[in-house]
Amino acid sequence: MSTRAVVSTASADPRTGGMRSGAVRRWSRWAEPALVVLALAACWQAVSVLDVLPREDFPPVTAILQALVSDLQTSELWAAVGASMEAWVLGMLVVVSIGVPVGMLLGASSISYRMSYLTLEFVRTIPGIAALPILLFIYGIGQDLTVSFVVLAALWPLLIQAMYGMRDVDPVAIETAKVYGVGHIRRVLLVDLPSCLPYLSTGLRLSGTFALIFAIATSLIVGGEGLGAEMARAAVVGDRPLLYARVLLTGLIGLVVALGLTTLERRTLRWHVSQRGAQS
């Protein structure tokens, strides 16, 4: 979609041909968005310094960045980031090892699919946050709580996608494999799994972003070790620039996770029939 925009800006000016159009293209692809970001940061800075909005509550960008840089040099912050990411990774491992097989199993037969899909679609809309107090009774504050909460909240999207994926396996491919005498386990590995892959990677992206939210929410609400607890601490102390810096860092981590999972999704989708037409 960005290429379409670029083509239209380049062709709007017929004098920019050859070498220059490449430069123009690169310029408008990177520089304009970058300028927008800078302009917004400048606006914030001005609003804060001129006290249009209370400076106390909206610290200037420079102060936030300063707080971020000095915060990044403390080991406490890295320990907190480490704890949150560890909970995320462990939670996602459990989510994948439960969600994929159970989802594929439920999707494998049309009876189990029909029986479960409405229930599951419904379960996924129930806010997982509701389970936190009960989990808190069971595990107390700590990494166990965070991981189990992450699993409970992030399991559903992947499981449901795995189920949909199995419904979409080409029956001809299965029959062909059967005719050629491919055994059951090999059939799952060679036919079912690859054709589910696009669904699985979409589910992984959805689950991954959920998991991150809940990994951070847990320590924010109940304390313990993690990015959420660090934010709560900065808020309690009343250090606004530090609070903004930690929220900014959390946003950046969220962005990295989201971009990573989207890239993974595109990679795994590239070979798939549904994408081949779109690529060319």
């Binding site: 991150l212 951070i216 924010l220 900065a234 929220v247 946003g251 969220g254 962005l255 996770v257 989201a258």
Partner: peptide, 13 residues
Amino acid sequence: EFLRSMPVVALVP
């Protein structure tokens, strides 16, 4: 992209 992938709970404080 930034605001969208921001874990929204982080904005509660």
